[in-house]
Nucleic acid binder design. Structure first.
Lengths: 341, 341
DNA sequence: ATTAGCACTCGACGAAAAGGAGTGCTAACG
DNA sequence: CGTTAGCACTCCTTTTCGTCGAGTGCTAAT
């Protein structure tokens, strides 16, 4: 729909604006060198692009800035994936070379590094247990009345909770229960655990122990309890670097949102595999209507391991960030397979 | 050293300044009602207080603001502990009434609540394993080459890491090793684990398994590896509410510091029991030279469980925060004892 | 179709002026 | 002698106003 020239101009304007954060005028485009037309011509095209809704004018005598629609077109048709710079690649590689001994660590550090490399904020959603299967269950008494329940998933993910031991349960009973659970539940996907508990385990349990009702509900709570969503962020202070958030109130809105786990979860509601870009008001959350969010999901052998997102101003370096996320997602898969040989 | 009147005036000035964040003039003090002298008299006293270094003047024709020394005097001699309001108390109580099933949860939520109640930023340092004893050790194979090692402390604290299984170790061997470790290490304080591993376990181990060297170092790494310091913060966006940080650069400095775990640890270096107040430049970290940090340590039965700190502008509500931390620390102890009956 | 030229718009920047809160000092008062 | 009223002075803050200049849209020439 756009002429070649219009696309070049749009590309040039967005490129410039991403760098400068200031409205781009026809003259400066003309002087860039990659569009060899006079300012007047460019002005005409700019007026057309504005009419199409791809550009906007802050006020009459200012240059143009891209609209949401403009960014969308840019991301869909124009952006060039810069590839990942040598330095960045090295940094990521050395990061994965370090020994990482648990999941939270890997994902957390990945987030930190990403926010450092991009100077944006990274948001990370941990793996959902929902899609994994149970590998091992263990109860470890701490004292007479409480015990630690440990749940290991086949991905190596570990959850633990402290529970209080119901009266009248002996160590012996507990051992039996644990054995029974491991026998019956190992390999069962978490979303089925609840039903298996009721169908298969309830009967067996009643043979050993008396008040099996109580124990059953306790176990059910313990194992299937909605694990707290593991969502966190890194590099929030980078937001303050962006000139669009030099106004403290805007910044506060965004930082405030980052701190509300509930809201943060909403960001990742729709979770298609691969890389997704949400620009400005395309995000349902009002707080980040001036931001863009680029997300990537990671999976290993079909199991979703989590989502990582980069949050920046709408004027963000889409090319760079998309490349980086691509690179990283491949590297994570690589590392996983090496980890599990 | 200060006359009663001077103390009243100092107190009034600091109170006012904490509320308004603006230099306090003699007139406004006189009109407050609690100091029944004329502005002129108050001015004279203010000049004296400034000479003593307790007050400062931003410029000639402005009111006075407290100096670091002034705040220090206020905290040491003047501040009235407001007690905890009914609402706040209820909020804290209902918080602890919720079932909390692991440590990270309790401390983390406590931090969130505190930052909400105070409108400052709270920083939390998790329990140090150093001072706890080992309760249970477990190895759970995930697949042929990797296993999850789980370490439970007597406090109910759980650590886990993924390790790769050395070649030539059978399931059987692993079982033996785990049994041996539990037998020898249960009840041993973590800081002694290393030496016990070498002295007692090395020999025994060599009976069962051949390449005991490898395994020993692996175990040593696994168990004694410096666990990542669990330090995190909550309510950072509250900082942006404070007028002293309406300048984005100052805010960025502080937020940036909060995100660097290393630096954050430094804040808690000196860790006396009880409540400690560090005002402005009394903090060694330059980034928070315009902030005050109030910290409280929590222990249960002599074991330090962690530290929680409230970070705000030097102009912070010392009375309120100190009261709250006091209240909370007692409540945590209470909850602990209820938890462990 | 492209471009040079030109009048026009409108925010940014800076100087100057007005306003006002607060001080320090002096002198008067009980 | 301690306290207070009065007053000149300081200096920050806010407002106003004029200038500047980047950038536009339009028209006419190429």
């Amino acid at each position: 729909m756009l002429s070649e020239r219009q696309r070049m101009i749009l590309n040039a304007i967005i490129d410039d604006y991403i760098r400068s954060a200031e409205p781009v005028g026809s003259r400066s485009i003309s002087k860039r060198g990659d569009v060899i037309f006079s300012p007047a011509t460019i002005r005409n095209e700019m007026a057309d692009l504005e009419e199409m809704g791809l550009l906007e004018q802050p006020h009459t005598s200012a240059g143009r800035i891209p609209s949401i629609k403009g960014y969308r077109y840019y991301v869909d048709h124009l952006v060039t994936l810069d590839g990942v710079g040598d330095q960045d690649a090295r940094k990521l590689r050395t990061f994965f070379a370090e020994k990482m001994n648990h999941w939270e660590g890997v994902i957390g550090h990945a987030a930190t590094i990403l926010s450092q490399l991009t100077n944006y904020t990274s948001i990370v959603l941990g793996p959902e247990m929902f899609s994994t299967t149970l590998k091992h269950f263990q109860l470890i008494p701490i004292n007479d009345v409480s015990a630690v329940a440990i749940i290991v998933a086949n991905t190596g993910h570990v959850e633990h909770r402290t529970i209080s031991i119901p009266d009248g349960i002996s160590m012996d009973d507990m051992g039996k229960i644990v054995n029974l659970l491991n026998e019956k539940l190992t390999g069962v996907p978490f979303y089925k655990v609840k039903s298996v508990l009721h169908s298969e385990i309830a009967k067996e349990l009643s043979r050993y122990v008396e008040q099996c009702e109580d124990i059953l509900t306790l176990l059910e709570q313990t194992i299937t309890e909605e694990q707290e969503p593991k969502v966190f962020f890194s590099g929030a202070s980078n937001m303050l670097t962006q000139p669009e958030f030099k106004d403290v109130d805007k910044a506060k809105n965004i930082l405030g949102m980052l701190e509300e786990t509930q809201l943060l979860m909403q960001l990742f509601q729709s979770n298609p595999t691969g890389i997704q870009v949400k620009i400005g008001t395309e995000n349902t959350l009002e707080a980040i209507n001036q931001c863009s969010l680029i997300t990537a999901t990671y999976s290993y052998e079909g199991q979703s391991l989590g989502t990582i997102g980069i949050l920046g101003p709408t004027r963000m370096e889409y090319g760079k960030v998309i490349s980086l996320l691509n690179f990283l997602s491949k590297d994570i898969a690589l590392m996983m397979s090496r980890w599990y040989k």
